[in-house]
Design a protein around this nucleic acid. Structure first.
Lengths: 319, 319
DNA sequence: TGGCGCACTGACAACGTTGTCAACAGCGAT
DNA sequence: ATCGCTGTTGACAACGTTGTCAGTGCGCCA
């Protein structure tokens, strides 16, 4: 910038004015400056600008894994909203590891992001408190975080309830639940929905029909249930990866899965799912964030998005 | 930092030393400083640090669309390599729009990223020249960019050649090619591979069996070919989205697709594909970038990664 | 002619760090 | 007692911006 000022024969401040399109610069002068900028290939140093002004026009996004289609859809939505607000996105995958999540978040904060969209892996976010006090906004998405802040969730319990009820309506009495580790919020909620649906239909809850854990264990768990003495006739799966794992076992039994996925309609039979809308989730969270950034300091909000049952065949197999 | 210095009763510089774990600070003093840091919830301002030191420990990643599984795999790989080198990733989707790509790249540059991994949508990258001269490293991934720089590609022509040859070996003589717009580098290369395979087998090249364009047009294009008077008996598809679009048309004819995708093995018949490795692509590009950042100033490299034919049934249907 | 306001421009400090260099005390060697 | 050395600490400038405030020249009105 100093070089540009020199080249154009004006003061530093005048260049700054031109770069920021501030009013009150003689068009002729502005022209000389613009020419000098062009000639020297000058580009404003954003770090210095941030240092002076406080805002970075950058937000941070922490998700579990970009490579998971659910989160990549969410990512894209957040990115689009950010771009519309003139911001960029620093993103990172926590891999469901609270330590890595913490490191990412703190790294984002020390780079002075304006705000954060977090799909929390951990449950303790006290370390965020000083940052929030310092003016960084935060929105939790998909799961609630460890402190009072804006949160956007899906109706996990309601969706699971709808999916399991659907199986019950088709005559099933022994329905397995295979889901994520119970420690994950969404998994717990979905299990609640499952139990509520059973209870409403007057069916007993049988712990031997419930398996929770990472997706790799889903197949073996189902195999064990099926070789037991009171095997299930239907399965409700707790997330997309687990649904696929169950499909790979090759058993042909009634199935409803939480999360929609590409090609679910092309399999035979088509896979009935309870669909969430990751794009809407991301969009809602990001918009809420930018509302906060533009000065809305009301009490934290909690938004719950609906789910949608999509029958495709696998959930309509008779019991 | 000033507050911390005051609270600990030391000079600014001493706090800086402690924060940066520089040697030569009395352990007792360091203890007082650490305590003050803890007490005040201090965190170093990275913008100021960048301003002073020049390195941001941040790289930029420009891809076509995070929501596409191919690119989300690549993203995750880049992110992991970056994290291993203590860097964060600013990422953005260009949506195959050269203007948006340019905006993203320049925005990254003005935030002084150390380097860029770019999946180029445009072909003109002259605007990058001053940035490269200013020391920002750049690696093109998946496609070559508009200037001399490190590039990591897949063996597009070879992969297409292998896929088409596979169909020919199974007796097909009229093989359609349905791919991306020919203006996209990878699409052009794959078309070359297709033509080379035909030529080697002594088969004629029939333009009426070739369709290029966005994925939405793939289904209609195939339908048109099949209702013509010399319909194809097999199809080679130029990318994952187009493969899926062709599958949705419901025609049962021999098919080999470029790009592997989840569930390809669960469809009936399984979908034979030419698999690229997006994770390896991302990893290779990012590692090359960090090699440059750590001082390797050799001439630009061009790496070509192999592809792999995975027979699953659809490509082995008789002609 | 003097005074006033307007349009434009510039000098300077400050943002929060870190690199450079100097200062200081304590200590063993001369 | 002096010197030089080591270990520790601090003062100060600089990084590239922008906000504040103070000019400067010019036209216009009284």
């Amino acid at each position: 910038m100093k070089d540009v000022a020199e080249a154009a024969g004006v003061a530093l401040k005048t260049v700054s004015r031109v770069v920021n399109e501030e009013p009150g610069v003689n068009p002729a002068t502005a022209g000389r400056v613009t020419a000098a900028i062009e000639r020297l290939g000058y580009r404003r140093n954003e770090s210095a600008r941030v240092l002076r002004r406080g805002r970075t026009a950058t937000i941070g996004l922490v998700i579990e894994d970009v490579a998971d289609p659910f989160y990549s859809g969410l990512s894209r939505a957040v990115e689009d909203v950010a771009l519309r607000h003139g911001s960029l996105v620093l993103s990172g995958s926590s891999g469901e590891d609270p330590r890595r999540e913490r490191e990412l978040i703190l790294a984002f904060c020390s780079r002075r992001v304006d705000g954060l969209v977090i799909v929390p892996a951990g449950t303790d976010h006290d370390y965020l408190r000083p940052e929030l006090d310092a003016g960084i906004a935060a929105v939790f998405a998909d799961r609630p975080g460890g402190l009072e802040a804006d949160t956007v969730l899906c109706d996990n319990a309601g969706g699971a309830h709808a999916g399991v009820s659907h199986l019950i309506r088709h005559g099933h009495r022994r329905i397995a639940f295979i889901g994520d580790s119970a420690s994950i919020f969404t998994a717990g909620e979905r299990l609640h929905g499952y139990r509520r649906a059973l209870a409403e239909a007057g069916l007993p809850f049988d712990p031997s029909l419930v398996a929770t854990g990472p997706a790799e264990q889903a197949g073996p768990a189902l195999n064990r249930m099926l070789s037991g003495d009171a095997p299930p006739t239907a399965v409700f799966t707790g997330n997309g990866r687990i649904t696929v794992a169950v499909l790979r076992t090759g058993h042909r039994l009634a199935l409803v899965g939480f999360d929609d996925f590409e090609l679910a309609d092309l399999l035979v039979p088509g896979v009935t799912v309870v669909a969430q809308d990751p794009v809407r989730l991301g969009r809602t969270a990001a918009e809420l964030l930018f509302r906060r950034l533009s000065g809305d300091h009301g009490t934290p909000e909690r938004v719950e998005l609906p789910t949608r049952l999509i029958p495709r065949g696998s959930g309509e197999l008779p019991g």
